[in-house]
Write a protein that binds this DNA or RNA. Structure first.
Length: 471
RNA sequence: GGUCCCAUCGUCUAGCCUGGCCUAGGACGGAGCCCUCUCAAGGCUUAAACACGGGUUCGAAUCCCGUUGGGACCA
């Protein structure tokens, strides 16, 4: 068996969306598993809608999710001569013919056919004419087979049979000299020696139109695989109104690319009951026969869960690295730069169980920067009350006697005071929590003190007492 | 309209090819309980599905036929 060559061929008409990433991902996984080649090809023949910014966005998105390509990016607009050359070859071989039908004529004939209950395809008027060299406007049409069947053994859907009698003589070169989509794809896939064409199943009915072109051109026909679509919660095709569809929007919302990849690959593919996969496992375990045949609904809640899983289990130093730019962007530039990598990692461990995204984490982590905190007024009102001031002072006095912070020691000291005062743990813990973090919800109190260190813990306790007494 | 594709809990899915191990398993989300200094995390428990109808068979989620319902493409 020759080397596997697959491709991802997006149109640069906007950002890289989630569905595109998943298609690319399946191709990439297969290429890596088979030690094959993954090619990036930009289908920009529709010049009215294609932009360079979109190409940049595609490249940026692919890089973020770590889908590296071995060849390309190729641009179809740079390959126009190839399409024209091969179109002429088909003409010479007698597999194509010039068509001088005007588009208005075609439209009226199509409507007539429809009215008679016939299929609205091209009636083949110019096929018999055999125009050698047309004067004026002419499009080149492919002589599609009119009898027999085209059979596709799809990697995902299995055997699919199409009657050739339904095939149109489709235009391969427009009168303006530009190739049509179906033609340029075939020429590229053939010339790039693509062995497996894997794309969205919205292309399924294009396939029997393309196969005869491969054959007419004298190229081997690749294997095909058609991936089911991704749907929104209302079962309609995923679009903007279902929320973010751009892959980079998820980066901005604080998602980890590994979580994104893991979620997307599980959307339509499975390996038993396993949910979490390392990239290496994905490469090893991926297989076409476990790709689902039916469309899948994109579930943001499960994605969120998966992101939280990755936040909890990734090395803290790695999460800290991801967090740094976000912290700097959140107005903590100087503080972040002053912090040591170890302390940052310690912070990540402190809050990672409660952050589902990196943006979440920024919020959780903010109170531990700087000497003092800003208080949440609700919480102050509820817990930092004047009646609490004396006992907080007592606690402060005892803590001050310790020359340095030892978690176990301080915790024992704290609990002893609670007991002496006949209080419940929570009665003292909450006011202290607000003093230290400014909020009523935080990680464990003594873990917080550990991250803060002796000096800042004492300082914040003092400030808290001042607030409680109303100073 | 024509052609093609698809159909297991609300969602992602296992099981289907190679019928019995399925009183249908896992995950997300939901509900409840436990743990607990708050918020989480975690643990345990729980509700929830084989689209429908016919066959084939001792036996069907699994094989066959049909119906219904979704979707894609062609315009």
């Amino acid at each position: 068996m020759s080397q596997v060559r697959v491709r991802f061929a997006p149109s640069p008409t906007g950002f890289l969306h989630i569905g595109g990433v998943r298609t690319a991902l399946f191709n990439w996984l297969y290429a890596r598993q088979q030690k094959g080649v993954f090619i990036l090809r930009i289908e920009d023949t529709d010049q009215s809608r294609s932009t360079d910014e979109s190409i940049q966005a595609i490249v940026e998105g692919m890089k973020w999710v770590g889908l590296d390509w071995d060849e390309g990016p190729f641009r179809q607009t740079e390959r126009m001569d190839l399409y024209r050359g091969h179109a002429m070859k088909l003409l010479e071989k007698g597999c194509a013919y010039w068509c001088v039908c005007k588009s208005e004529e075609l439209e009226t004939r199509r409507k007539e056919a429809e009215a008679k209950g016939l299929s609205p395809r091209y009636d083949g008027r110019c096929r018999a004419l055999g125009i050698a060299s047309p004067t004026g406007e002419a499009a080149l049409r492919f002589k599609a087979p009119q009898e027999g069947q085209t059979v596709i053994d799809d990697l995902i859907k299995g055997k699919i049979v199409f009657d050739n009698s339904v095939l149109d003589d489709l235009i391969i070169l427009r009168s303006n000299g530009y190739p049509t989509y179906n033609f340029s794809v075939v020429v590229d896939d053939a010339l790039m020696n693509i062995t497996h064409v894997v794309r969205g199943d919205d292309h399924l009915t294009n396939t029997p139109r393309q196969v005869p072109i491969f054959e007419a051109l004298g190229f081997p026909v690749p294997r095909f695989g058609h991936l089911p679509m991704i749907l929104g919660s209302d079962k309609a095709r995923l679009s903007k109104r279902h929320g973010a569809t751009s892959i980079m929007a998820y980066k901005e919302m604080g998602y980890l690319s590994e979580a994104m990849v893991n979620y997307l690959v599980r959307l339509g593919w499975s390996h038993g009951d396993q949910e979490i996969f390392t990239r290496q496992e994905l490469i090893e375990k991926f297989s076409w026969d476990h790709v689902q045949k039916s469309a899948a609904v994109f579930n943001p809640e499960k994605l969120l869960w998966m992101n939280a899983e990755y936040i909890k289990t990734s090395p803290p130093s790695r999460i800290a690295q991801e967090l740094i730019p976000l912290l700097e962007g959140a107005g903590l530039k100087d503080e972040t730069r002053a912090a040591s990598p170890d302390w940052l990692a310690q912070l990540v461990v402190l809050v990672r169980e409660r952050a589902k995204t990196l943006t979440d984490m920024v919020m959780w982590v903010t109170p531990y920067f700087g000497q003092t905190v800003s208080y949440d007024e609700e919480s102050v009102k509820k817990f930092l009350t004047p009646t609490m001031a004396p006992i907080l002072s007592k606690l402060l006095a005892r803590f001050e006697k310790f020359p340095s912070f030892f978690k176990q020691e301080w915790e024992e000291c704290f609990k002893k005071l609670v007991e002496e005062e006949g209080m419940k743990m929570g009665q003292l813990a909450q006011p202290v929590r607000v003093a230290l973090t400014g909020r009523a919800a935080s990680p464990g109190l003594f873990e917080v003190m550990e991250v803060l260190g002796r000096e800042r813990t004492l300082l914040r306790l003092r400030k808290g007492i001042e607030r409680a007494t109303g100073a």
